[in-house]
Amino acid sequence: MVTNPLDYVEPLGKAGASGFTFHVETSKENWQELVQKIKSKGMKPGVSLRPGTPIEEVYPLLDNENPVEMVLVMTVEPGFGGQKFMPEMMDKVRALRKKYPSLDIEVDGGLGPSTIDLAASAGANCIVAGSSVFGASDPAHVITLMSKSVEDAQKTS
Rank of each mutant, 00 (worst) to 15 (best):
L96M: 04
R94G: 01
P139N: 03
M90Q: 04
M70T: 12
D108Q: 08
N66W: 02
T115G: 12
K14N: 13
L96I: 08
A95C: 05
G81K: 11
E57T: 13
Q154R: 15
V2R: 13
S40Y: 06
L61M: 15
W31H: 08
F20A: 06
P78K: 03
G46F: 03
I127D: 09
M89F: 07
S147C: 12
E77N: 15
Q32H: 08
L6G: 09
M1V: 02
K98R: 14
L118K: 14
E56K: 08
P87S: 05
N4M: 03
V150E: 00
R50Y: 04
K37A: 06
G123D: 01
K155V: 09
I55H: 10
E57F: 14
S147T: 12
Q36S: 12
D138P: 04
D104H: 05
E25Q: 04
G52L: 03
M74H: 14
V133Y: 06
A15C: 07
S137E: 15
K41A: 10
S121G: 03
P54C: 09
S102W: 08
G81F: 12
T144Q: 14
E57Y: 10
G52W: 00
V47S: 03
V47R: 00
E57W: 15
P54A: 03
V150S: 03
P5S: 15
E57R: 07
S149N: 05
S48L: 06
G46I: 01
D104Q: 12
S121C: 02
F22G: 05
E77Q: 13
S102G: 08
H23D: 03
L62M: 08
K92F: 06
G135W: 09
N30H: 15
Y100S: 06
E33M: 07
F22P: 00
P5A: 15
S40K: 11
N30P: 03
K39M: 13
G46E: 02
I127E: 02
P87Q: 05
M146V: 05
G82L: 04
V2Y: 11
T21W: 10
V24L: 06
P67W: 11
S149W: 03
Y8V: 01
M146F: 04
D91C: 04
I55A: 12
F20G: 04
L103E: 05
P101W: 01
K28Q: 14
G19R: 14
T53N: 05
M74N: 10
F85Y: 15
S137Y: 04
Q32T: 13
L145C: 01
A136W: 13
E65L: 13
E57S: 11
P51Q: 07
G52F: 01
